[in-house]
């Protein structure tokens, strides 16, 4: 049954994926032609970074395309598969599209670096290929994209659950925004509590970075201090987003009506 859902969702997005990949290639070749014409090949990299960073929204967009395909009549809810399977299928297929696109972008970045490095258009330490940085970039983009994808699923389910209340229909978008802002603000507040900060600092792993860095999305923050990365925030973030996904599935089963 789950295989059938995956196959259907793949067929629903296949054409969009092909068009997107062709667009990526077209943008790259235009950028490369422009850079070669200017005699400054490094000019291709802003375009590559634009394509890279677009991936953060590519996954939620792919997911929304799949959800939109179900909105006419919502027949998908008349299914032997529950909400978890239905939404997981959408998430996995959207993730597949995201990964295919990310791999293509990686290939284009590698080709560009292979050309740019020997010609001195780009400086890297010891003139080496920045593989480690590339992996980190891929991981960061994947994390960010998954964050927005899971939130997208949850907020989509809340939005459609509100269908049953005609009086709320006109303010649904406002409610969705309010829920997102409230949860983010509450998370940020909780993270400021000294006891929580102490607890987070109690379990770290050394990843060899000597500098202190911090990054995050919304209310979530992760930090590396003197090469130590805090593990609790990562684990809690994963658990929180899994709970968000399950909440979306529960809403789909119990509250979303046609």
């Amino acid at each position: 049954m789950f295989q059938g859902l995956l196959k259907k969702d793949f067929l629903l997005i296949k054409n969009y994926l092909v068009v997107w990949l062709v667009l990526v290639l077209a943008l790259y070749f235009c950028a490369a032609a422009f850079a070669v014409y200017q005699g400054e090949f490094y000019l291709v990299f802003p375009f590559i970074f634009f394509i890279y960073f677009f991936h953060i929204v590519l996954l939620p967009i792919a997911e929304m395309v799949l959800l939109k395909a179900e909105e006419k009549g919502h027949y998908w809810l008349h299914s032997t598969a529950g909400g978890v399977k239905q939404l997981l299928s959408k998430l996995l297929i959207a993730f597949f599209a995201f990964i295919v696109s990310l791999i293509l972008t990686d290939l284009l970045a590698l080709i560009s670096l292979k050309i740019a490095l020997p010609q001195g258009f780009v400086d890297t330490p010891d003139n080496r290929m920045p593989y480690a940085e590339g992996i980190l970039l891929n991981m960061g983009l994947t994390g960010g994209a998954l964050y927005f994808a899971v939130w997208g699923l949850f907020l989509w389910a809340v939005y459609h659950s509100l269908n049953a209340y005609p009086t709320l229909k006109k303010i649904r978008w406002f409610l969705i925004l309010a829920i997102y802002i409230f949860i983010q603000a509450a998370t940020a507040k909780v993270l400021q509590i000294p006891l929580i900060q102490k607890w987070f600092a109690s379990w770290t792993m050394n990843i060899g970075e000597s500098e202190t860095k911090a990054w995050g999305i919304g209310g979530m923050h992760f930090s590396v201090e003197n090469g130590d990365i805090q593990l609790w925030p990562i684990i809690l973030s994963v658990i929180f987003h899994m709970a968000l996904f399950l909440a979306a599935a529960w809403l789909l089963n119990r509250k979303v009506e046609v």
Binding site: K8, L11, L12, K14, N15, A69, K72, G73, H74, Y75
Partner: peptide
């Protein structure tokens, strides 16, 4: 169903 049910693609 009177609407939806089949995927155009």
């Amino acid at each position: 169903a009177s609407e939806g049910m089949i995927y155009p693609g």
